[in-house]
């Protein structure tokens, strides 16, 4: 199955009756995702989008439709609560798209999830896409096509750019994972890379990072010590001035090893093929597969 989601995933949408939730749930359904329900407190019993049942709680959704994936579009002030509810209901995979969750809330979520079996992707991310099987998020489905390249990225539209370039060189994706650009996120680049490395349907991994944090360094250390597949990387923010926040709350260079140049150097010395131009991602993937 690629990783994390496929056509057997039983997906619910928390916040399905809101404008964002409703719009994207419809898009996911149209893509063919197996959306089995939605959750909006107080609106249980209704049915939306031509037959999707709405539940009051994740517990109800878990029990009634055996949901194992939750996609969250709940507004930022309530999103942390929504993640914890899904985890407590035993949902195995929670994908939180919501942007703007306070860091203090995410600190508590992270601590809460330590003793749970739930994996969180995001927040502030475009979600997941396993081409022609499941779209769990907001990525435009038409740019992706089935293939054997795994994509993991901190960014949204830059992921689309990478996916598009992979398509232009005649390749496709096993799964595309947007992990989010916030300072605190549920699943790290390293964890996704490990999943791709173990996935028999993935041949190579594209890793798109940016300035700030040390996630790419962790991933690079893994590649050096345990990596089995070619990894192609790009780090956005070479030209970003230190100390300035560039949109993503996490995209700020606060230490020397968080700059694009430092990350690229470490990645290269770990065996990752790093492209300097963001336009070169697709070609680099094609080249790696030819030489591999």
């Amino acid at each position: 199955m690629a990783i994390l989601v496929d056509n057997e995933s039983r997906i619910i949408v928390q916040g399905i009756t809101g404008s964002e939730g409703s719009f994207h749930a419809e898009q996911c359904l149209a893509y063919g995702s197996n959306i089995v329900g939605g959750v909006t407190p107080g609106k249980g019993g209704q049915s939306v989008l031509e037959g999707v049942p709405v539940f009051n709680t994740c517990y109800d959704a878990r029990q009634s439709v055996q949901a194992n994936v939750s996609l969250i579009f709940v507004p930022a002030p309530f999103a942390a609560e929504a993640i914890m509810e899904a985890a407590d209901a035993g949902i195995e995979l929670v994908v939180c798209i919501t942007e703007g969750i306070p860091v203090r809330d995410m600190i508590m979520v992270k601590a809460y999830l330590k003793n749970k079996q739930t994996r969180l992707i995001g927040p502030n991310c475009p979600g997941l896409l396993t081409p022609e099987q499941a779209k769990v998020g907001i990525m435009p489905g038409f740019i992706a096509k089935p293939g054997r390249i795994g994509v993991v990225s901190k960014s949204g539209t830059l992921t689309y750019e990478a996916v598009y370039q992979i398509g232009r060189v005649g390749l496709g994706q096993s799964t595309c994972v947007g992990i989010g650009g916030d300072p605190i996120i549920g699943t790290s680049m390293l964890e996704v890379l490990t999943l791709f490395d173990a996935d028999p349907l993935t041949d190579a991994v594209v890793l798109i990072g940016e300035i700030g944090g040390s996630m790419e360094i962790e991933a690079a250390e893994y590649v050096q010590q345990h990596g089995k597949k070619p990894v192609i990387g790009f780090i956005a923010g070479e030209t970003a001035p230190p100390g300035r926040r560039m949109g993503h709350a996490g995209a700020i260079v606060s230490g020397a090893d968080e700059s694009a140049a430092a990350k690229k150097a470490i990645m290269r010395s770990s065996g990752i093929v790093v492209v300097d131009s963001p336009a070169g991602i697709g070609e680099a993937v094609a080249q790696q597969l030819q030489t591999a």
């Binding site: 830059l158 650009g181 798109i208 030209t239 131009s277």
Partner: peptide, 17 residues
């Protein structure tokens, strides 16, 4: 002028490149 922070940074980078 770009949509998305990551692509915006990447666009700055390629201009420099």
């Amino acid at each position: 002028m770009v949509n998305g922070a990551g692509l915006a940074m990447a666009t700055m980078d390629i201009i420099k490149f």
